[in-house]
Amino acid sequence: MAVLQAIAVLAILILVHELGHFLAARGQGIHVNRFSIGFGPILWKYKGKETEYALRALPLGGFVGFPDDDPESSYPPNDPNLLSNRPVLDRAIVISAGVIANLIFAYFLLVVQLGLIGTPDFIAKPGVLVPQVVAEVNSVANQAGIQSGDLVLAVNGQKIDGSPQGIETLREFIQTHPQQEISLTIQRGESTSETKLTPTLNAEGKGQIGVQLSPNGEVVRRKIGNIFQVFSQAAEEFQKITILTVQGFGQLISNFQETANKVSGPVAIVAIGADIAKSDVTNLFQFAILISINLAVINILPLPALDGGQLAFLLIEGLRGKPLPTKIQDGVMQTGLMLLLGLGIFLILRDTANLLGIEKFFQ
């Protein structure tokens, strides 16, 4: 059920994106002959007066089709309501509308979350949670007897709590003390004990003991009664998330070699969403907000086969006074599409391997 909920969230965000393109075109009287959510075999379709609406088997995608690209189209090539015959500004509105729709939807979700569900406040409890210990028999944590579900209350006598800061304190202490004995205060159930262990040195020159670390505490939601404050705080949160997202993509581009392994494909995104839904289904709002803004930022990048790539062609056309030759545009778009498909397949295989515990083949 949690996986289906995560997939449903992604499908809704894709629907919003494609609906933005569709409404921007139809609102200007531009012909649209196909509106599809998903790829692959058609599960359901409806033929309207002008547009065929379809739901396909793979919901992680979608497209809006225009008769300009349909060799069987009944519209004459000089029809003024074909997308390709419209001025640059009209086409730019249609192309950018998907990104705008995702951003507006993210802000709408923030308003709903803050007004109806409430803003989450995390109240940390003592100790950092160890949700999982590396299964290797010779891992430091295994040899020291640490088990999944244990709480680390202190490191070398320094108390820590389950806040993100507490997790970072513990992680940094372990990483900066490779091959040095440290003492962890472990709580298991009602009993507390001192465990001494020596972090091993990893390939990056940092200490590691072979555990995952998670926050320890509870989330309390605080509703905002004032409607004006809801819209104001939603705008602040929207701005903060958008800036952080853009900065994240900036770091990915400027420092690709070190950050590329953090890029997630649809499989990993669905897995993250499923975990979120299991813990608290209302957290899917935050998941949808983050993914919606990420979709907008990704699509606006000036890369072939993305909305940003098509906008780049329009910018060149506006500056030149005429479009680039069709062969050049088609070549760039087809190359970009193949690269994106290749990247997508790689991410799906890698993320699936990670979930199955065979990630070593993709390292």
Results as ranks from 00 to 15, higher is better:
303 L>G: 07
247 Q>F: 06
281 V>E: 05
296 A>E: 03
270 V>P: 01
287 F>T: 08
250 G>M: 11
242 T>S: 14
311 L>W: 08
286 Q>C: 01
250 G>E: 11
295 L>M: 12
263 V>G: 12
276 I>Y: 05
298 I>G: 05
232 S>D: 13
238 F>S: 15
236 E>S: 14
235 A>Y: 07
241 I>Q: 07
232 S>H: 13
291 I>P: 05
296 A>K: 05
283 N>K: 15
306 L>Q: 07
264 S>L: 03
309 G>N: 10
270 V>I: 15
304 P>C: 10
295 L>G: 02
283 N>C: 05
229 Q>G: 01
301 L>H: 03
285 F>I: 02
251 Q>N: 13
317 E>C: 12
317 E>S: 13
245 T>F: 06
258 E>Y: 03
289 I>P: 02
286 Q>N: 13
303 L>E: 08
313 F>Q: 11
314 L>C: 09
252 L>W: 08
234 A>P: 07
234 A>G: 06
243 I>P: 09
289 I>Y: 07
240 K>R: 15
269 I>A: 06
256 F>Q: 10
295 L>F: 08
303 L>W: 10
253 I>R: 04
240 K>S: 14
297 V>W: 03
251 Q>Y: 12
278 K>M: 09
289 I>A: 02
307 D>K: 04
249 F>T: 00
293 I>D: 03
303 L>K: 00
315 L>A: 15
266 P>H: 11
271 A>I: 02
263 V>Q: 12
264 S>P: 03
301 L>T: 05
286 Q>E: 03
266 P>W: 11
237 E>T: 06
248 G>Q: 01
244 L>P: 01
248 G>N: 02
315 L>I: 15
256 F>E: 06
294 N>T: 03
312 A>N: 07
240 K>N: 13
268 A>M: 14
289 I>T: 05
283 N>Y: 13
304 P>G: 08
277 A>P: 11
296 A>M: 05
316 I>M: 14
309 G>Q: 10
261 N>D: 14
310 Q>C: 01
276 I>G: 02
238 F>W: 14
287 F>D: 01
308 G>S: 06
265 G>R: 05
303 L>D: 04
256 F>C: 04
297 V>K: 00
281 V>N: 04
313 F>D: 10
317 E>R: 12
258 E>K: 13
283 N>H: 13
302 P>A: 10
